[in-house]
Design a protein around this nucleic acid. Structure first.
Lengths: 176, 176, 176, 176
DNA sequence: CATGAATGAGTATTCATTCAT
DNA sequence: AATGAATGAATACTCATTCAT
């Protein structure tokens, strides 16, 4: 694995596990086994590293979510599969909530660069729901599902339990 | 206003506006106009200040929410009033999401003291919904409403807009 | 026990156990169960408390040492009894070296007030040895014994063992 | 002189002159003319700086002591030369006792890392005496001489005078 | 392209002491 | 005589970033 990739992977892991502010540059370079100046060569600032982390994981998440729902046929099945995808994600022992929402709580709200990136990713989820619901002409439900999606993510972290995902799924079944 | 109150008010304002980690003790004492050692006389550590902030604002929020819904009669009206309360809260120019969920994203997951406080507050909301729904024997809906409640809070912050609260309200109307 | 005495006893215990610099005024007042201003009423500064501690324990030590050697008749017996007294003192589980020599290592050498107090106490020991040796006209040995006395104290602390006191006693037997 | 050396030299000088606890990191960096973070790059904590100081000065002291006694032939001459070495050391205007014994009085007794380092250095002196005395089969005297060695160091500091070293030397002459 | 020593501004916390009540 | 809140200066330590090699 090359230097840049090693830095990014390490940063991604640590940012998610410990939070962005709590992860120091020194820990990243130590665990990635690179020199300090190498990191700054590839990422001019810690924020650039954050932005790249958000972009990459955002794309990866959407990609695997799309791959997962592709296995299902009807819109309702696809929608429910989205929440099963979530359940699988939450069951990981290293589950620590949504990387985007976590970062949102850590960066100052003046930071439009990062905040718009977060919005962009969330809008992708909204669009994905709309896409799924289009065949049955229920696009108007997409934002309601998106709310339940984020709710499931955030509250399962707070309560350290799976019940919120089951609750969200129950509501979804009623709605669609 | 006495010293302790001035410290707590200032800390509450800054923790909410900038986040807990991004707010230094130095800024708190400067804006509260107290000496550093005075702060530590009242709050042995920054974490104690955080805990007091969460406890106080949690109690205040629940109190004013209860006062707000008391004006309504039927369970459905009460439930919808909860989301109107939220809308009013979100409309503040200084709105910055839910203080509890923000802190949850900032403190390490080892910090059981703080995390249990957050869970406790959220369980208060769940219990409040159950209480409202009891007369019409729909307590089973309480967690679904709670999810929409937190969803409205978190996503309206991310998108810096009121639409999530309207969306959540729409779902609630369907459910109850 | 009255306030002043309670303060002094607590300070004495803590200064000896933890060192002078490592013992804060706050710990003293807390463990002595007195108000901060009460301490400053009785002892205008921490240094005054130190001086009183040294004076009192110095007097007490000399008194009990004199009481111990009074039981013995011949000069040689008395001298050896001095080292047995030391052994008993060192055997205490709370043994932490010589309170005077410990303080000597902690206060800056500009502090003549404290340093002269330490010298004064040590000169008392030298004089006591001379007194013991006078009947057999061996006063000239007094400083040699005093050196072995302090050596036994300091090295038994460093090595956390009793062998230095036995070694010192062996030398003393040869000398007298 | 490079940074690390400048830090260590300054710390050594200040630790010896003022004591370990009374010397702040800020004073060290100011007098060494380095940035705070530079110090922490080289020495992860103040205690690491202390340990390095003790190790280096311990080695240097033993080396120059060995060099000094190498000039003498008979065991008795060598032993007496040890105390002359001490006299030379004590005559320095900046004499402030034994750096090891000073530190021993300052660090809490839980600090085994530092305390074992001190014991190790002192055991080196004991071994050196045994080594000198071996040719005349008087190794059994080594601990007695070691006690007088430490006694000379400590009491000459307390009394700010050379007489203790002469007294110790006198006893040594009788013993060997 | 990679290195790691150096930096200045920051962090939370503790100190002995004072002062109004 | 006793109280305890308030203080300013100090403590050890960490941060993201720069720069000469």
């Amino acid at each position: 694995m090359d230097t840049r990739e090693r830095i990014l992977d390490t940063a991604a892991r640590l940012f998610y596990a410990q939070g962005y502010n709590s992860t120091g540059i020194n820990q990243v370079i130590k665990e990635a086994n690179v020199a300090k100046a190498s990191l700054y060569q590839h990422f001019p600032s810690k924020e650039d590293l954050l932005i790249e982390y958000l972009t990459v994981t955002g794309n990866e998440t959407e990609k695997s979510l799309r791959a997962h729902i592709a296995k299902y046929k009807t819109p309702k099945e696809k929608v429910l599969a989205t929440f099963d995808f979530l359940a699988k994600f939450i069951k990981q022992t290293e589950f620590n909530g949504c990387n985007f929402l976590n970062v949102a709580a850590e960066v100052p709200h003046e930071n439009e660069k990062v905040r718009s990136l977060i919005r962009k990713q969330k809008n992708g989820i909204r669009a994905l729901f709309a896409e799924m619901l289009k065949p049955i002409h229920k696009e108007s439900l997409s934002d309601e599902l998106y709310l339940l999606f984020d709710a499931a993510l955030i509250t399962s972290r707070v309560h350290r339990d799976l019940w919120p995902i089951r609750t969200a799924r129950k509501t979804v079944e009623k709605l669609v």
